[in-house]
Nucleic acid binder design. Structure first.
Lengths: 133, 133
DNA sequence: ACACCTGTACGAAGATTGTCGTTGACAATC
DNA sequence: GATTGTCAACGACAATCTTCGTACAGGTGT
């Protein structure tokens, strides 16, 4: 009974919710039918609708009328959601070490020289940003 | 009714489960009481026990008798769990771009010059690894 | 008008999570 | 040998998540 129940905290998304959000982030917006199609139609229409309604209740998406249908769009930015998810992983799994997270990230993946270069630039920027302080 | 539910897939951990796993990864192992203490005793003894039993049922932890108590230890490595979690995030939130994930990761954090340097080394290693192919 | 589409709303059912209370086993201590 | 303390097992309960079935509403075509 710690009472941290407040619905203010965004909290993370469950698997299915994340599937839906992923589509909306990628496409920008979508009707129930569009989202369902993007998911390969593996789930029923009403299921997708229900998920969107739950997500809306949580404040993660909004909708506007479009003809007869509703068009849903994300209200939380993917970067913010990603930041929260990463923080959680860094703290709980990598014991606060972003390095270790990075090591694991690049472990199982192949990168082109260009990608590596861009990632270096990202680190350079972070370094300069630190210096200016 | 897609039926791809097979309980073979490790799936992700929920918040509370991750709290518990985090302790076991950090400490190596722990009895119910130890884990509970590590969590600041904010949850009841039986709750921690139940979580450990659920985790055991899922194959994420195991236990051995130690005197009168059980000593639980992780069966899944943190790096593997982290890898799965990262894959999920990269795919669902960053649309497959590890770069963008990295950008978000370093965005809200401050790093020492040493940390940046070590992260660069990680990228160097990944690059060399790619070359050898 | 009537029968269909297309779409949303409602609500229920099953699974899982997270929280415990209670019980019972076992050993140490008085 | 009765009491107390430690600890696992069982089962209950509420909250969520996920999946739909069913019902209802507004157009469309004949």
């Amino acid at each position: 009974m710690t009472g941290q129940r407040g619905k203010r905290e965004p909290k993370g998304f469950t698997d299915r919710e994340l599937d839906i959000m992923s589509v909306l982030w990628r496409e920008g917006s979508g009707t129930v039918t569009e989202v369902r199609e993007a998911l390969g139609e593996e789930v029923g229409y009403t299921t997708v609708l229900k998920m969107l309604q739950i997500l809306e209740e949580k404040g993660a998406v909004g909708h506007e009328q479009e003809g007869r249908a509703y068009r849903y769009f994300p209200l939380v930015e993917s970067v913010r959601a990603g930041g929260r998810a990463l923080t959680r992983i860094v703290n709980k799994i990598f014991h606060g070490s972003a390095e270790r997270l990075l090591a694991t990230l690049v472990e199982d993946r192949e990168f082109s020289a260009e990608e590596i270069e861009r990632m270096r630039s990202i680190l350079d920027r972070a370094e300069r940003r630190g210096d200016e302080k």
